Structures are given as C-alpha cells and as structure tokens.
Amino acid sequence: MSAAAFSTWWVRLGQLAGLAALGLLGLFDLRFGLFTGMSPTFALLLVVRTGLAVATVPVWLPVHRQGSRALPVAALLLGTASLAVTFGITVLSSGRGLLVGGSWGLAESAGLLAVVFVVTRRGAARLAPWAAAVTALAAAAMPLRAGTDNVLVIFGLLQALAAVGAAAVGIYLRVVAAGRERAIALVRAEQRAEFARDLHDFIAHHVTGIVVQAQGARFVAEQDPQRVIVALEQIERAGAETMASMRRMVGVLRNPDAPLAPLAGVADLAPLVQGHNGTATVPARLHVDGPLDGLPVEVSTSAYRVVMEGLTNTRQHAPDARSVHVAVRRTPDWLLVRVADDGTSGRTAPARGHGFGLIGLTERVRALGGTITAGPGVAGGWVLDAALPLHPAVAR
C-alpha cells in the first residue's frame, strides 16, 4: 500500500470513529435531555438543537481544500444558530425548572468542537478566526441551556478550553502544512533550475557541433558534394534532438545566475556505485542491459539522479540492508531504472522525514513524460522504479 493510500485509510477511520462517537452522544442526549411540560416552542427548540448536531457533520466530516471560503461561512452560520438556540432555551426555561436531564446537547458540543478544529485547519485565513471564535463561544455557552449553576458554568469553561485546544491543534497543523508546501516549492524550483542548467550545457554542446559542421560543409561543398549531404544529415539529427529536448522541458524555470556544473549521466553510474561501496556498509551491484550510448542528455542525467537518490535512501533508511541491486535496461522506447535493496527496517513512505529528494526527482521525471514509483518490494525490501521515454512521441 502506498503512503498516500495509507494516509487516506487513517483519515477514513478517523471519520468513522467521529461519526460513531457523535451517534453515541446523540443517543445520550435523547435519553437524558428531555423537557417536562414542554410547550410547542420548547419542542421546536429541541428539534432545532438536534438538527444543529446533525448539521455539524457535513462541515467537519469532508476533507476540505485549503483556504476554503465556504467552510468558515458554514461555521459562522452554525455558531450563530447554536447561540440563538442557547439564548432561546435559557430565556424560556428561566425560573421554570423545565430541564430534568443533565444533557444540554453533547452531540452538538462535540460537533462544534470538531468544526472549530476544521475551520482553523482549512478555512480561508481572513474568515477563519472569526468563524472559530463564534463557534467556540457557542460551544462554551451551551451548558447554560441547563441552568446557571456553578457546575454548569464550570462545564462551559471546560468546553471553552476544549475549543481553544482544538483551535491550537488546527493552527499547528496548518502552520506545519504551510511550511512543508513552501519547502516542496523550493525543492521543485531548485530541481527546475538544475534541469535548466543541464539544458544549457546540452544546447551549448549540440549547437557548437552544428556550427562546426555547417562551417565544414561550406568549405567542402565545391570539392565533395556527397560529404555536404552527410554533414547536413548530421546537422538535422542534432537539431531535431535539441528541439525535442527543449520541447520536453518547456516551462522549466531558468536562473541565469546559477553556476553551471558538469553533467553526470549513465556513463558515470559505475563510478557512482563504486563510490557508494567505498563509503557505505551496504554493497551495491550494477547491472546494465542494452547499449547506453546515444541517449538524450536529459534522460541520461535523470537516470543518474534516480540511481543516486536510490542509493542515498538506502544508506539513510535501510541500515540493515545487505545488498543493493541497481539495474538499468534499455528498450526501443524506454530507459528503465531500478534501485532495490533487501532492508527490513519497515519503511512506510518513499523517504522518512520530508522526502524532498524524491519530490524533486519526481518533478524531474514527470517533466520528461516518464513515471517513477517507490515502495515495498514483492519479496521485501524497498524498490525505486523509473521509466524514462527515449522519444517525444512515447512521452505523449
């Protein structure tokens, strides 16, 4: 099971647990929250109270998008309605002793606390504080429906503290998520800038070759026209390859001030593996199937980075692994890269912690039109697989 699917299952289990808890509290309210000698007005307020408890479910249960405007608006409406019901019950029951049970609406209280958490976690930044404040005030005031005794006032304070705690957790998770998104955006920008540097070197190499071939063709045109045709064919191939690479990397951010570095590609895999074996306790073996010459430069460099990321993750997250198998296979249309270890450390995500290395690598591979996956192997261990297209038509 992938990390995303694993996380989704936890969310679904949490939602089911919340619904079950709300249902039990609703049964408690029905059993111990009844009025004696209720007038039609009291009966209406009780129905509205029950309806409010149910109305909180579609607000806190779904997974809302970040910055939702509808979420704080719904929370404001719920909080305002709850305060109105509290005011109505308090006024009508003042001095009459009409409430014989001890429940003021525990299901509604729990639902409002969940709304406070969700609205601070996902609501639009401008509206979320106001919506959370009104909803928290509604939850704190609910015990007053049962009277104004000291015990009920204390319960109101406890619900206010619970609302503050829910808001604090929601804000904390919001800040953590925002920080992670900024870090991911930075990694992607750096990866795109690195891609642009590779493109710069690649174009410089091929354009220089085209210029040299064109100059040579001009000098031999009168002496050997056949050689001119050969030179033109070479120029055509180099130009087509350059244009294909540029089309694949449309949208790549370019930092003109970034320093240029030498390109590392599949030809450097053997030294990379040897360097890994010289510094790590987990030996790696390289297996190559098919010729690796003539690869598009962006495919070659991306394959190198896939292997580098796989070896890095094995060294960091699989200290108990006994071996790492690096396989590179070329087919007519694809370059397939696999890094597999036999570690049993129980990794549950592509990389522990933030996993920004894999995020940047995924950005790079997808820019080429390829695919990349990471997860537990069928026979155990961890497997990083990447498929890189060799032709633009394959990537589409």
Rank of each mutant, 00 (worst) to 15 (best):
Val324Glu: 06
Pro319Asp: 08
Val324Met: 11
Ala321Thr: 09
Thr314Asn: 15
Gly346His: 14
Gly353Gln: 08
His354Leu: 14
Ala351His: 04
Gly353Arg: 00
Pro332Ile: 01
Ala318Gln: 13
Thr312Glu: 03
Ala321Met: 04
Pro350His: 08
Gly343Pro: 11
Thr331Cys: 08
Asp320Leu: 07
Arg329Leu: 05
Val337Leu: 05
His354Cys: 01
Arg338Val: 06
Ala349Pro: 01
Ala340Asp: 08
Thr314Val: 14
Ala349Val: 15
Thr312Tyr: 12
Arg315Gly: 07
Val326Arg: 09
Val339Ser: 02
Arg322Ala: 15
Asp333Leu: 11
Phe356Ala: 08
Asp341Ser: 01
Arg330Tyr: 07
Ala327Gly: 01
Phe356Asp: 07
Ala321Pro: 08
Arg330Trp: 06
His325Asn: 13
Val339Leu: 05
Ala321Phe: 03
Leu336Asn: 09
Thr314Asp: 15
Arg322Thr: 15
Thr312Asp: 03
Ala327Ser: 11
Val324Ala: 06
Ala351Thr: 00
Gly353Asp: 13
Asp342Arg: 03
Leu336Val: 13
Val339Lys: 00
Val339Pro: 01
Asn313Ala: 14
Asp333Pro: 01
Val324Thr: 15
Asp333Tyr: 06
Ser323Tyr: 04
Val324Ile: 15
Leu335Cys: 09
Ala349Tyr: 01
Arg338Ser: 09
Thr331Ala: 12
Ala321Asp: 11
His325Thr: 12
Pro350Cys: 05
Gly353Ala: 03
Val339Ile: 06
Ser323Ile: 02
Thr312Gln: 13
Phe356His: 14
His317Glu: 07
Val326Ser: 03
Val337Trp: 01
Pro332Tyr: 00
Thr348Val: 15
Arg315His: 14
His317Gly: 02
Val337Arg: 04
Arg352Asn: 08
Val324Trp: 10
Asp333Thr: 12
Gly355Glu: 04
Asp341Pro: 05
Val328Phe: 08
Asp320Gly: 00
Arg347Leu: 14
Gly355Val: 05
Trp334Lys: 00
Val326His: 04
Thr331Gln: 14
Ala318Leu: 06
Gln316Asp: 15
Thr348Gln: 11
Gln316Val: 07
Gly353His: 00
Ala327Val: 12
Asp342His: 00
Thr344His: 14
Arg322Ser: 15
Val324Lys: 12
Thr344Asp: 10
Ala327Met: 06
Asn313Met: 12
Val339Trp: 02
Gly353Pro: 03
Arg329Ala: 14
Val324Asn: 05
Leu335His: 05
Ser345Lys: 06
Leu336Ala: 09
Asp333Phe: 04
Arg352Gly: 05
Arg329Ser: 13
Asp320Ile: 01
Thr348Asp: 10
Val337Cys: 02
Arg347Val: 10
His317Arg: 07
Pro350Tyr: 10
Arg329Asn: 06
Phe356Thr: 03
Ala349Asn: 08
Ala349Glu: 14
His354Met: 10
Val326Ile: 07
Ala349Met: 13
Asp341Ala: 05
Asp341Asn: 15
Ala327Glu: 12
Val326Asn: 02
Pro350Val: 06
Thr331Asn: 02
Thr314His: 08
Val337Gln: 02
Phe356Gly: 03
Thr312Trp: 12
Phe356Met: 13
Gly355Arg: 03
Gln316Ser: 13
Val328Thr: 03
Asn313Thr: 13
Arg315Lys: 12
Thr344Lys: 14
Ala318Thr: 10
Thr348Pro: 06
Gly346Cys: 12
Val337Tyr: 02
Arg330Asn: 09
Arg338Glu: 12
Arg352Cys: 02
Pro350Gly: 09
Val339Gly: 00
Asn313Glu: 11
